[in-house]
Computed example of a mutant assay.
Amino acid sequence: MRIRAALAALSLLGLSALAPAAPIAIKDDRGASVTLPDVPKRIVSLLPSLTETVCELGDCARLVGVDRFSDYPASVRALPKLGGLDDTSVEALVALKPDLVLLGVSARVIDRLEALGLKVVALEPRSMADVQRVLGKVAQVLGKPDDARRIWNRIDGAISLQAQQLPPAARELSVYYEVDAAPYAAGRASFIGEILARLGPRNVVPAELGPFPKLNPEFVVRADPQLIMVGQRSANGLPTRPGWHNIRAVRDKKICVWVPGESDVLVRPGPRMGEAAALMARCLRQAAAGPVPWPTTPFNAPSGGMR
């Protein structure tokens, strides 16, 4: 009897191994419902934060192509580069025969890819809640929901740790964070603004202006922040903007200038947000102690342009 029971159990195991995988159903940030027959084996990612999310979940090997800006982790730099949001090479992408294309909601190529029969999931993280949700959706696609919870807890814990270690003087500063020289700012409603809020300083750009509003430069002059955070691309001309010499941050030389590698960490809403918090915390500590040193290496735009 025991032998027959063991044989029956082995038979059931064999049948379960041969059973087809359950389809994966997901609703993306357009509200579109996408059904995948199985965990995708060949993925194209057209957004750096999504590329980093796939890799953080341990599935870099499933990526067969990425956008021109995806450069982390180092292994993705060898993958075919397929352009950006506005100039994706559809022919090169189709030739890679992906099971799934991950991209941002604003990508112009969505309709064309779907017309060609490709599975497309559009995700657009803007806030920290969005990042957590997108992490969960990508993990669902990859069949790793438990890993998403683990990774999010690590990110959240890293931000909390940075906040706990900041001295009171650093937490009391007022901050203007510029993401582009138009100027576009990181408002309190953005993931950058939310990290800043967790650290403690006051963001001079209110939430009601939206996550990344385009500002009248006079707004920043009137706000008179004690500290400015800005990428190296925009930093050199910043002190000479009309009226900006009167801003406390400019007058007191409290401007944190991010080199390109640091900017990438800070502007990508994904797994490296704990590192972004550490960069901001370093800046806040420096500004609380006195003038902030500028980078000593000149700015060189990465090949392929900037975002």
Rank of each mutant, 00 (worst) to 15 (best):
G14R: 13
L103Q: 05
A278I: 00
L63T: 03
K253S: 14
Q286L: 12
Y184S: 13
L18A: 14
L50H: 10
V250E: 00
G31V: 11
G270L: 01
K41L: 14
L63F: 11
D147C: 13
L116P: 14
G157V: 14
E124R: 08
Q232D: 11
R198A: 12
A25W: 06
V205P: 00
D130Q: 02
D130T: 04
R171G: 07
Q232C: 10
E114I: 03
S33G: 14
L227N: 01
L12G: 13
E91D: 08
R307C: 07
L266Y: 08
L199C: 13
R150F: 12
A288K: 12
L15N: 13
T88Y: 04
F219D: 00
A5D: 14
L113T: 03
V265I: 06
D156W: 03
E178L: 02
K137P: 00
A182G: 11
A107Y: 03
L266N: 01
P48G: 04
L15W: 13
H245N: 15
A78Q: 15
P239Q: 02
F69L: 09
V90H: 06
V121I: 10
G187F: 04
L116C: 13
P225I: 00
E194V: 06
P20A: 10
V54C: 03
V230I: 14
Y184N: 12
Q226V: 15
G84P: 05
L96G: 06
T88I: 07
R133K: 15
V54Q: 01
P167Y: 10
S303N: 15
L46R: 04
G83M: 02
G136C: 08
R77P: 03
V105G: 09
N216I: 04
A25M: 13
A9N: 05
P125C: 04
A74M: 02
M273N: 11
S11T: 14
D156K: 08
L15D: 14
L10V: 12
V267I: 10
G58A: 12
L199D: 10
S174H: 09
V250D: 00
V131D: 00
A107R: 01
S263L: 10
Y176L: 03
Q232F: 12
G243R: 03
A163Y: 06
P73V: 09
F191I: 06
N246Y: 13
G237Y: 15
I228R: 01
T297P: 15
A287H: 07
P183S: 06
N300F: 06
V230H: 12
V120H: 01
L118S: 09
A288F: 13
K253V: 14
A21N: 05
A207T: 09
S127C: 05
P125K: 01
L161H: 12
L199N: 11
S263A: 11
F212W: 04
S174C: 06
D59H: 12
K97M: 08
L161K: 15
V131C: 01
A289K: 09
P211T: 11
A6E: 11
K41Y: 13
R150C: 11
N236R: 03
V265E: 00
